[in-house]
């Protein structure tokens, strides 16, 4: 089966929506979970960004949340199907407990992403495309420009609170 760049773009959009929606639903931008996340948020605000977006980026850095869950679920489904995805949900929960986090966001993101990736593999989009798509999605949040990304996340957080 030849590779299709459109498949990777579709996978990137789907995983972006998945992890942003679950992170916003579990109120990650409200406050920094640990002192390191608060420090990252403050530094991003000092560099010209928005504080809620900075807190959410700090939380993504300092404990495995829905973004890590989506990536690892795509890896698990790529190797072993749905049981592999559920195994990674268990591993993400253990990692969350190690990082002093309740672990709701990571586990929920992992389980929903498992079924989303499995469903898309039935209509012909390979789980490997979802691994590349999730890497592109996290690149747009954390890797391009911290100022613009934190402002975008703060706007979305304003919609969530309203």
């Amino acid at each position: 089966m030849p590779a299709d760049p459109l498949h990777i773009l579709i996978a990137a959009a789907v995983s972006w929506v998945n992890f942003i929606a679950i992170d916003l639903f579990f109120r990650l931008p409200e406050r920094g979970g640990v002192s390191g996340a608060s420090e990252i948020g403050r530094q991003i605000e000092a560099g010209g960004g928005a504080l809620p977006g900075g807190y959410m980026m700090g939380n993504i850095v300092s404990s495995p949340d829905a973004s890590a869950g989506t990536l690892l679920a795509a890896c698990g489904v790529f190797i072993a199907g749905v049981p592999g995805g559920l195994l990674t949900a268990l591993l993400v929960y253990l990692g969350n407990r190690v990082c002093h986090d309740p672990g709701y966001a990571g586990t929920t993101g992992c389980i929903t992403a498992t079924f989303i990736v499995y469903g898309f593999s039935l209509i012909g989009i390979s789980p490997a495309s979802f691994i590349a798509g999730m890497v592109i999605a996290i690149l747009t949040i954390q890797g391009i420009s911290s100022v613009h990304a934190s402002r975008l996340l703060a706007t979305l957080w304003g919609w969530r609170r309203a």
């Binding site: 002192s35 390191g36 890896c75 990692g95 990082c99």
Partner: peptide, 17 residues
């Protein structure tokens, strides 16, 4: 992969804290 990812996350957490 999960062990590597969780390990590096813990490391970032400790450095930032």
């Amino acid at each position: 992969a999960a062990a590597y990812f969780i390990g590096t996350t813990l490391e970032s957490n400790a450095i930032a804290s």
